[in-house]
Design a binder for these strands. Sequence first.
DNA 1: CGTATTTATTTAACATGTTATCTAATTGGC
DNA 2: GCCAATTAGATAACATGTTAAATAAATACG
Lengths: 144, 144
Amino acid sequence: MALLRAREAVMGRFRPMLRDHDLTEQQWRVLRALTTAPEMRAGQLASVSFISMPSLSRILRILDDRGLILRRNEATDLRASLISLADDGAALIARIAPLSEAHYGEITDAYGPEALETLYRMLEDLTERLEVRPAERDDPGATT
Amino acid sequence: MALLRAREAVMGRFRPMLRDHDLTEQQWRVLRALTTAPEMRAGQLASVSFISMPSLSRILRILDDRGLILRRNEATDLRASLISLADDGAALIARIAPLSEAHYGEITDAYGPEALETLYRMLEDLTERLEVRPAERDDPGATT
DNA sequence: CGTATTTATTTAACATGTTATCTAATTGGC
DNA sequence: GCCAATTAGATAACATGTTAAATAAATACG
């Protein structure tokens, strides 16, 4: 699958850097997502970082054990757990972010900013079209 | 990552079908690869199906236990294990292949054959450009 | 010929993906 | 208020991805 190979090629640029800081790609996605809001529910975090709840559950335990995040319960809904960045987490992000930007710049240089933008839009378009269709299977009698 | 989401959207179309036959996506990739040659070394199989050797090793054990593949050692190099499709494996592929084609057709219809071809080429181009660069890190003094 | 180095494959350890199930809290209807 | 159904998260079980190390056969080299 071309998508797989491309993704691997891209991640190959980031992984060594993350490894130096003992983070996996997914843990990094979670931490970065947490910079976009002061607090986030686990479910939100899962959807914005595109990680399944079971995986996220494990990741949060690891990040919590490492003191990178904080967790508390929502007062109005005790089921919900609110996640936020701990100081150590924010500090770690501050150290890694510039490196991440540099790698991203490398990729942009290698492929061209316009081409990258085009590719991005095409991927989103494909994703959108594929995600709509399956719903039809719940309504096979539709107008085709 | 747009690549991840696109890949997930695509696989979402195939996974239920594979699941009906108790196959994972990777197991299916391996079986399909085996139709392209009467016999293949494990290493070849890993590279054409884009699966790491450790994963492939486990997958081959599973497929072997299910009687879908055959294994023997190469006479001239006892390290190499030659993999081929067992009759049951070929039969399973024959049952699944038409369904797979149908799903592929759906995707083509949803996105357009030309766009799909364009996307494919862009992904390959990106992959190629990213895979070349890392080698430079072994030779930092190169002419840039 | 014998040993050091490569090469093909496997195994181990840990993290994640996928699917299913579980627990606990909330909501809806009565 | 009580109970069924829903919702948020967590856990379990199994397969794969990643990295490192182990095993075993082949090759290189003195």
